[in-house]
Amino acid sequence: MSTGFEAFRQWVQALAEGGYLPPSLAYGFAVNALLAGLIAGPVLGGLGTLVVVKRHAFFSEAVGHAALTGVAIGILAGEPYTGPYGALFGYCLIFGIALNYLRNRTGLSADTLIGVFLSMSLALGASILLVLAGRINIHILENVLFGSILTVSGTDIAILAGVGLVVLALTAFFFNRFMAASFNPTLASVRGVPVKALDYLFVMLVTVVTVASVKIIGAILVGALLVIPAAAARTVSRSLKGFVALSVLFALVATLAGILIPMELDLPVPSGAAIILCAGILFLGCTAARAVLPALKGDPA
């Protein structure tokens, strides 16, 4: 895979030098970032449709924030601060699975429970970070919080590609069953859908893709890319086909624009913030289109 990746980088760099692509892509790190965006965008956009259908938006945000604590734990445990993946995956998976386990056992509504977990997790993360403050350059946390294209390495891309492929395959394979379980769990069970197991699978999919995307989008905003493109697509589409296709497209456009525009215009904006701003603009555009074009409002309910 690394030779293919190397060939891709050289090809893109050659195109950039030849003036066919934006000149900033003549830099190796920029190609890395672009590649990461090309993978993360569509995967997050595709899975995002199910996040919206299953009303897991707040959960996705919470998992992203848990990544901050995961990074802190990783650095504390001696993992490299540029990619503490062990602690990131470990902590976030425990966070997501524990949340899902308690959801049906506390009698609390999902948003209350997520609120509790989110605050506990952030408090833990903040405490550990202060302990670490003397040991590391605290500015690297900016990268963790808001994403940075400068630090995307080959390892990051390999992890993102692996995770992305698995998540995409499982999402497509179980798409109908995730949908059916959200319509009516009893009906889904009668039709042979393992509803509870799929709930766990879903939180795990959201968690791993979130963690793998933290590098370019950042812990604070990664959850947003699971929600905003799908939300934008929902407002202007009339069938599942349009919903999924537009969500993937919006996420891809937002990611690429968010990476390329700051580089081209020399803006000191973190990649995560730029990506989410682009997604937000698409969302506002879709809302405006829906308000202006009566055809998008769908048949009268």
Partner: peptide, 15 residues
């Protein structure tokens, strides 16, 4: 969700 862009055909084929 009532606003979900899902046609009758989408719904039935999901099931």
């Amino acid at each position: 969700d009532r606003g979900l862009p899902m046609t009758v055909m989408d719904f039935l084929s999901a099931l």
